[in-house]
Design a protein around this nucleic acid. Sequence first.
DNA 1: GATGAATGAGTTTTCATTCAT
DNA 2: TATGAATGAAAACTCATTCAT
Lengths: 206, 206, 206, 206
Amino acid sequence: MKKIDNEYLFIYTQKVKEKDPDKVTSIYRATLERVSEVGLQGLKMAEIAKRAQIASGTLYLYFSSKEELLNSLYRQLKLQQSYLKPVSQAESALPLKLQLKAIWTQALKYRMAHYAEAFFLEQFARSPALSEESKQVSDQITAHLLTLLERAKAELIIKNLPNELLFCLLLGLLKETTSLCQAKQQDLDQDLIENSFLLCWDALKA
Amino acid sequence: MKKIDNEYLFIYTQKVKEKDPDKVTSIYRATLERVSEVGLQGLKMAEIAKRAQIASGTLYLYFSSKEELLNSLYRQLKLQQSYLKPVSQAESALPLKLQLKAIWTQALKYRMAHYAEAFFLEQFARSPALSEESKQVSDQITAHLLTLLERAKAELIIKNLPNELLFCLLLGLLKETTSLCQAKQQDLDQDLIENSFLLCWDALKA
Amino acid sequence: MKKIDNEYLFIYTQKVKEKDPDKVTSIYRATLERVSEVGLQGLKMAEIAKRAQIASGTLYLYFSSKEELLNSLYRQLKLQQSYLKPVSQAESALPLKLQLKAIWTQALKYRMAHYAEAFFLEQFARSPALSEESKQVSDQITAHLLTLLERAKAELIIKNLPNELLFCLLLGLLKETTSLCQAKQQDLDQDLIENSFLLCWDALKA
Amino acid sequence: MKKIDNEYLFIYTQKVKEKDPDKVTSIYRATLERVSEVGLQGLKMAEIAKRAQIASGTLYLYFSSKEELLNSLYRQLKLQQSYLKPVSQAESALPLKLQLKAIWTQALKYRMAHYAEAFFLEQFARSPALSEESKQVSDQITAHLLTLLERAKAELIIKNLPNELLFCLLLGLLKETTSLCQAKQQDLDQDLIENSFLLCWDALKA
DNA sequence: GATGAATGAGTTTTCATTCAT
DNA sequence: TATGAATGAAAACTCATTCAT
């Protein structure tokens, strides 16, 4: 049973309800844990409640249905994704390559540290239960990157290819690398960060 | 309602049952179609039967349970993955880069043409219903690639990094690119093939 | 898998159908075997067919439904029960006690030799599927005994109690003794016959 | 629709579940009633639920499956069988014959009063659904009787025959007599008790 | 007649949701 | 608010029976 740390999730709850935010937090955590254990298909409300140490009826005080719980968690996580992303002042003075490397490193570390969330996001993104509203919560991680890539293209540092394709490269490697670590129960080491960035950079650079 | 062509799926059925292979084929097709429409969570035996134009009881003549049907389809598809991969004689005389490009092109086209399968494989791979036996059906797509990468490393053409990491790059870009096309309902054009291979190659090359 | 000998069952089929009597016989045999293996609850038409080495559809050429098959078998067996019972000419000259002993011995042996039938009869007799018609097929085994008991009562040899009660004693001991032998996979030996008759006789005698 | 009184069944529930014992009791009662009405073959979970005045899903809060419900009821009843059997202090001072008569009377009355249970036990004992665990719950009714018979044999009051055989006599007559009363919708009268015991005793006595 | 794959009505079982406490 | 037993609609699965071959 994977435990997901509470402080991190706390922030989700800000906008959710007028009710006890700790409870919402622990419902979210319980949901993520169960999804990482049994997948979306195997997810049962009763088990979420049990894991969150509340009665199953209580879930319905916070979320009107399973679908709403999942969509709500999805939106929180999506918004959350960008939360840790802004590059520090200090970093924004660095050369673009180093800024990109900082983002890459941060993204890899973030995803490893929050694998259950990443897993949930990927699973639920493809679920027919994903509401229209949820779909519209865009992944703002991209905003930062976008600016950076545009600048790098303008400076002829990286290839002038559609952003979409460049994102595919980065996102694909990011996902696969973290999946790999997860599957092999292996931690992210410095070598892996360096090597993976090396691949990215050589791919991108003009 | 997406239709998946029959001839292609026919080959799956070779080893499945002593019973009518056409029926197995159409059950597989119906399952893939429904999964691509409603996801694994929304998949119902009655709807698979309806789509396959058989009675729901008939499903159980071919598969003892829903779980067995999904695992069985999973194994067929996994074994199938390598089926189209061997590079032709003519190609094996080409320079490594061109061989790799041939594989890349083929893989992209294959995945686009069989997106429902790819989707099912990715979804079910993470399902708790995936049996041990199914897990053991390895993805032999990698075998060809592995040889090629090893040769290229030996010839100092590509970077001497762990195969796993190189696979992450290739598989990640492959998945994301095809997802992108799928999401945008856009066909794979020559530009996309060229550009995506350009990214791969620059990443890999020494 | 218990095999029930064919010659014995052959006689059932005389009045059943205009169709192949061998087939009816083997359906009956298969049914009895399956019932003795899995009970009435576990009895499936497909398994009867398999055991009888015919297609399940063929069952319906001989019997219009499962219920009819069971009722039909029940009636055959009930009629059959008395078939072996008539005491020989020679025996009818013996003292009543010895005649009774001859019947007792015969009944015990019969029941042991045809345990599957006895089991079926007892199970099906209590089934709601037992038709009115089947209920009316009386157990003529009793007819012989009845005469004998009446005579013995007239001669003041046995107790003047209601026949029903005397039957309960005899039938009860008969059933339990054969059940016991069956459960212990033990053959009926001479001791058991002697001892059980001793109990019966002492109970009955005036 | 036969009603089985609640107080009696209450004792079953002692060891069953941490949940509401009244509900377990009423499920047991409903099951016995339905079995006595339609037999084991005709028994449906939905009808048990209806009779017990609960939703069918509720059955599964108490028993994980139909099979478990039946086995559970079987074990309760088996254990229960001996419950009413111990002879009172006063009785144990009586001559053996009278003690035996007391047990006989008690057993007859008990079985008549709880015919549905007896019926269920006999039916389910032969069902393939009977679990190994259930088989092992021995019928402790015999323990008391055994002691008594052994003593009577030692005192040369009754025949020195194997207990098994003596049990066959007693159990057989018990079963048949109660079946008879049940079938004839007739109550157990004093005559029947006297007469049946007379038969038993004459059979047993040395 | 004989076959056995196919049928679908009828079961068992699950689980999101409700509601009395 | 919180509870968790109860609900019952909906799903998986079974199997007697049919029917095209």
